[in-house]
Design a protein around this nucleic acid. Structure first.
Lengths: 196, 196
DNA sequence: GTCTATAATCAGATAGAC
DNA sequence: GTCTATCTGATTATAGAC
């Protein structure tokens, strides 16, 4: 009754190759393009190998997500640790790859329930960390926490970058420049001109 | 050389049934769940009928999108025409169905290039219209157009509602209440207490 | 431990029957 | 004008060969 199917070692070379290829494929063509065949083709491997290294496609997606989310948390910690946390964070979240990644997985979560909890978990960790650092930074700048609490800053940054990137992806830009202008003017007032 | 395949009349009853079912299925389970088979099952019809009424799945998606987008434009025009355009617009965009719909199609556009231009076109019409109405409304309230131009209002509303809905879909709510609080405090200052 | 041959299922599409 | 029988190809997954 025990299944004859076995799964490849977690540190096998080709497993990493597949994860890398899956990530690129997903960013370039959307999660729906990540099928065992197209992925294998990209990676220069046989389609069956995908199923050898990952019990189900969900496991593949989950691991692509975790890997990159952990990287993202590190990058964010570094950004928030700088002398100009607001500018650093703004630069980080407006990097298209960051938002594209999160959006793609949020869409994926719509019909892969197995991913929902995982994505929500990381999204909360990102926000939590942003919130803590912004709280100290904003206090330093004497920004009124009533008008714009640190938590709201965090939500606002995330929201703006997500939608700007999404719309850019559609080839749309109406209102983008003006919005970025308003945000950056605000940042300048609080944190001065960006260094670098 | 002429194809033997024919396409059903645009006003046939079952065609409408399919469009309605496709829209519901898409909102509930994501666009990837809309296949000819699952759609037909939902609609209580045979899978082949999907291909009879729509030359390709893209045509189906396109029509679902157009129908609802046109409805949305009407609803928005109505909202913006009210005595409290800011409140009305805020209520409209924070309706989960609105954002869910746009997000789902934005994700779809990632790997169905045929949809990109169409979605961008409508998104711009929405923004354009919001902008024009907000410009008059904000002028009436003596809001400083330098601090927050009407166009930026429009981008901000869209961004916030999109991401709040997206995160809610993941079961996440960290920072949501505080953000809504800040927005509504601002609206109250400009437009007074919401009537109704 | 790594990979392949192959099964089982499901998807999109079309020619032709009523 | 409406629908169905059916083809072609893709996709996930597994048992078993090296």
């Amino acid at each position: 009754m025990t299944s004859g199917r076995r799964i490849g070692a977690p540190d096998a070379k080709n497993r990493g190759v597949l994860l890398d290829a899956a990530e690129r494929l997903m960013l370039e063509e959307g999660y729906a393009a990540v099928t065992s065949r197209r992925l294998a083709e990209r990676a220069g491997l046989k389609p069956q190998l995908v199923h050898y290294y990952f019990r189900a496609m969900d496991d593949l997606f989950l691991e692509v997500f975790r890997r990159r989310a952990e990287q993202g948390l590190k990058a964010q910690a570094q950004a928030l640790d700088s002398a100009q946390p607001l500018w650093s964070l703004w630069r980080l979240v407006t990097d298209p790859a960051t938002s594209r990644f999160m959006m793609e997985f949020a869409a994926l979560a719509n019909h892969r329930k197995s991913m929902r909890a995982e994505i929500a978990h990381y999204a909360e960790r990102f926000r939590e960390e942003q919130w803590r650092t912004l709280a100290t930074a904003l206090a330093r700048y004497d920004a009124d926490p009533e008008t714009m609490p640190p938590m709201v800053w965090s939500v606002l940054f995330t929201s703006l970058s997500t939608v700007l990137v999404m719309e850019q992806g559609l080839g749309m830009s109406l209102g983008h420049a003006e919005t970025i202008e308003v945000v950056e003017r605000y940042l300048r007032r609080l944190e001065g001109e960006p260094n670098l």
